[in-house]
Design a protein around this nucleic acid. Structure first.
Lengths: 152, 152
DNA sequence: GGTATGTTTGCGAACGATTTGCATTATGAT
DNA sequence: ATCATAATGCAAATCGTTCGCAAACATACC
């Protein structure tokens, strides 16, 4: 069956190979922010003959085609999420790495104003908040799944 | 003579070696956001027998001692600035990489509110805005110095 | 359904930024 | 000055990522 991202790729006229189909499927099914290794790990389960180099290449392809977006969460490797039109940002739970997405129209407005006051037009921006749950004081490694996200 | 950062290091009880003194001086005199190679380049001018490994080690030492702060501007290498108590952020001029620092109390408040609404207490955060000057449409490589910064 | 042509893949080597092991040298306390 | 300890330089190692190249596709054409 055709995954959501695969359909998108076809629309954009990308040549669909077996490995690209698998990677598209993996990304369609992901509701977190996997890095390349993680995508590879999941892809190999479906078809073991996919090399990490191909995953790297495909991620770049999909990024260029604006099917996915790279998010830099400051942990040294590139993470990805499906491309979306809405601006959203990430709150990272420092206890366990879980990532919560959020959007804020006020934030968008404020950021526009700041840029304008500095004499600039925004072409991109990025905000990350690192935090721990209210009430949590220590470093409890909660047993909940990591990076479930919240609809934005 | 003793540089500002060197004094800070002494206060913190760090062992001051020749190379640490030189690196402290370089960082004290910097008003931009140099990466490790750039710090090394400047340090070697003062004392040619400083290795890049020492610069890496010293940067980490100073970061751990909270004398300097690492800033990740998304360009793949670590950049540094003197530690400061005020929260500020960076607007990066995408035409030439110049970095403008800014602070915004409203932003701080908003970000606190967002975190609270999500049930989190902030332990850190980071905002970068990428932009081009108002009026500038193309890619003019202005002849002004890069990354002069603006007092926050 | 074959077949030519241009792509894509897998592999391992190369990469750039950063860290590390280890023998040598310097520091700060005595 | 002495000495234990910590810092340095060097080169090798590491990590995430890219690249060259020959072999394996995908697609347009017959």
């Amino acid at each position: 069956m055709t995954s959501r991202l695969e359909a998108l790729c076809l629309e954009k006229g990308l040549k669909m190979t077996g490995q690209r189909r698998v990677i598209s499927q993996v990304l369609s099914e992901a509701d977190d922010h996997p890095d390349v290794e993680e995508v590879h790990r999941r892809a190999v389960v479906i078809d073991p003959r996919i090399s990490i180099a191909t995953v790297y290449r495909t991620m770049r392809l999909l990024e260029d085609a604006q099917v996915i977006e790279k998010v830099d969460l400051g942990d040294g490797r590139a993470r990805y999420e499906e491309a979306s039109t809405d601006h959203h940002h990430h709150l990272i739970d420092t206890r366990n790495g879980r990532i919560i997405e959020f959007a804020s129209p006020e934030l968008e407005a404020l950021k526009e104003r700041i840029a304008r006051e500095l004499g600039y037009r925004i072409v991109g921006h990025r905000l990350e908040i690192y935090g721990i749950p209210l009430g949590a004081d220590g470093n409890d490694d909660a047993d909940e799944p990591v990076d479930k996200g919240v609809p934005v």
